[in-house]
């Protein structure tokens, strides 16, 4: 099962480090990553694989929210299904 991690906020150092650290610690593999600066906002989207995840989805979500608060960004993790449903026919 795959999920999409969206990171949006003011650009600063260590964003990718902080997010990927949590993912790595919990055995979540990053399959794809793209980022850009939009309207002065750092915007990153990661496609991650949860098949070997060592913790519960809810716990991972909370961990990401905690780090989001620490680095002052918005971080969301959502199942890939939602995006596929809404944007593909």
């Amino acid at each position: 099962m795959r999920a999409v991690v969206t990171v949006i906020g003011k650009d600063r150092t260590g964003i990718i480090y902080n997010v990927s650290k949590i993912l790595a610690e919990n055995n979540v593999n990053i399959e794809d990553i793209s980022q850009t600066i939009m309207d002065d906002f750092f915007t990153m989207i990661m496609l991650v694989n949860l098949d070997n995840m060592s913790i519960d989805f809810n716990v991972l979500k909370n961990e990401l929210e905690k780090i989001a608060e620490t680095i002052g960004m918005s971080i969301r993790i959502q199942h890939e299904d939602l995006f596929n449903a809404m944007h593909t026919i």
Binding site: L47, R76, F83, N84, H87
Partner: peptide, 16 residues
């Protein structure tokens, strides 16, 4: 992977 802008569109729809 779903297109970059599609992901952002969904996030915007939910958040804003």
């Amino acid at each position: 992977m779903t297109m970059f802008k599609d992901v952002l569109e969904t996030v915007r729809m939910i958040e804003k």
